[in-house]
Amino acid sequence: MDTRSRAARRLRRAWKVAQIVLLYTALVSVALVTTGPFLWLLSTSLKTVGNVYAFPPQIIPRPVSLDNMIGVWRLLELQKYLLNTIHITAVGLFLTLVVSALAAYPLARMEFPGRNLIFLALVSTLVLPNPAGMIINFLTLQKLRLINTLPAVYLPSIGNAFGIFLLRQTYLSIPAEMEDAARVDGAGELAIWWRVVLPLAKPGIATLAIMNFMGHWNNFLWPLIVLQDPDKYPIATALQYLEGMFQDNFRFVAAGTMFSMVPVLVVFFSMQRYFVSGLAGALKG
């Protein structure tokens, strides 16, 4: 009896260990697939000797060197581009969040004429094409005298249907009782939105922030069109200088790409915690 229960316990423990091993094996193998190309770029950026195209490929760099990182930083003077990128991303992201959070509120909570029309218009932006959009927006910004300014880079993408829909969805999942209570107390809609709704919508906002961040950060074509002065370029645009007939250092390309990617990963890593815990918290509350 005693031995049998011990055996059973041992079996259960072994099963549990096996489960965890299996789980981690699965987690690691998926991670290898998703990060493989990134790891190769990282490894290439840390190599200084040998053939980039070696067959069979060399995975672990030997010796590890930061020369490419330093070299590409100095060649392109990346610090100024990094500052531009941070500016564009920070302001662009902030405005996207504010504008979407405002617009989503009446769509989630109020009945008003024109609502369906607005919905239709928002959805249509996801589907309808605008092949000449780049040219037309360029002309508009020119008329607004915004060409060659950083706002020209982020303004066109601030109002977007996705952000509004995502936050509307979040608002809908928040019980309306608290708002009604605040309304009874005589609070205005703006105050309710700011004090009651927004704090509860944090997970949705975090999700939108994560998803929107990289759009601003990695955008390279549009800045090139609207900025005339290369000193205003974001880093993704500046890295284009590494590709060309006379630019032949593949390791620099890899190193430069690392500079553009790592900040995004750091942001996701830190926001991700908040996003998940915030989401769980909101759902409990």
Binding site: M134, I135, F138, I225, Q240, G244
Partner: peptide
Amino acid sequence: WKDLPIGVITTKLTAAIAGGI
């Protein structure tokens, strides 16, 4: 002088000509 990557030069040129600059 302005230097541009090859992939985008016609796009930028199109916009600039359309914009009268």
